[in-house]
């Protein structure tokens, strides 16, 4: 199982993204970070930390659960429902420039759901998308504004992001298709 990003690489990547944010937005005024649960949330917090170190300003950070907006939710005739977690956006998103943070960009369907969910909270001035890994294979017309790493993959492979906060280690792994029935 090849490790495509290690802890050091992830750290440097997030710092680089923070610099790009400041550069592109000419500061952090009116910016807010919203991480997509689960692993987008710690990534958003780390970026907020970097932004504070760079600019001295605190960027408000929230967590978004997109489960109730998934387009595959009611398509299975029977099957267990995915776990719903709480959305926590403790600030108004009206007229903010929202930085939406996710770990992996793949088909784009999660991002679509996140955009729908976000708009139910208010009317932001704009939304920019930050992803740690873009593995391709888009099924919707969605493109990230900040990409940690472009990772060409095959459909059979899967990309797993591990983070200290949830998994006890920082690592991005490209998993090969496993033998046998899965």
């Amino acid at each position: 199982m090849p490790v495509v990003m290690d802890a050091d690489r992830i750290g440097r990547t997030l710092t680089r993204i923070a610099h790009e944010i400041v550069e592109r937005n000419r500061g952090v005024e009116d910016l807010a970070l919203v991480g997509v649960r689960t692993r987008g949330v710690p990534l958003a917090r780390r970026i907020a930390k970097s932004l504070r170190e760079i600019t001295g300003h605190e960027v408000p950070t929230g967590a978004l659960d997109i489960t109730l907006y998934r387009d595959d939710l009611m398509r299975q005739s029977v099957g267990p429902q995915p776990l719903v977690r709480r959305t926590e956006i403790p600030f108004s998103i009206d007229d903010k420039k929202i930085l939406l943070v996710d770990d992996v960009l793949y088909t784009g369907r999660t991002t679509r759901a996140a955009l729908d969910a976000l708009i139910d909270y208010g009317r932001p001035r704009g939304i920019q998308l930050i992803v740690l890994v873009d593995r391709g294979h888009r099924e919707l017309p969605i493109k990230a504004d900040y990409v940690g790493k472009n990772l060409p993959t095959s459909l059979e492979e899967s990309v797993q992001v591990y983070l200290q906060e949830s998994d006890g280690r920082d690592e991005v792994v490209l998993q090969q298709p496993q033998g046998g029935a899965v």
């Binding site: 489960t67 429902q81 995915p82 793949y106 899967s158 990309v159 298709p177």
Partner: peptide, 21 residues
């Protein structure tokens, strides 16, 4: 009840853990 996350071959950016009644 649910299989370990790694074995589910799920789209990592889409499917959180599943659990049900």
């Amino acid at each position: 009840m649910s299989a370990p996350a790694e074995t589910q071959q799920r789209r990592t950016d889409e499917t959180p853990a599943m659990t049900a009644l």
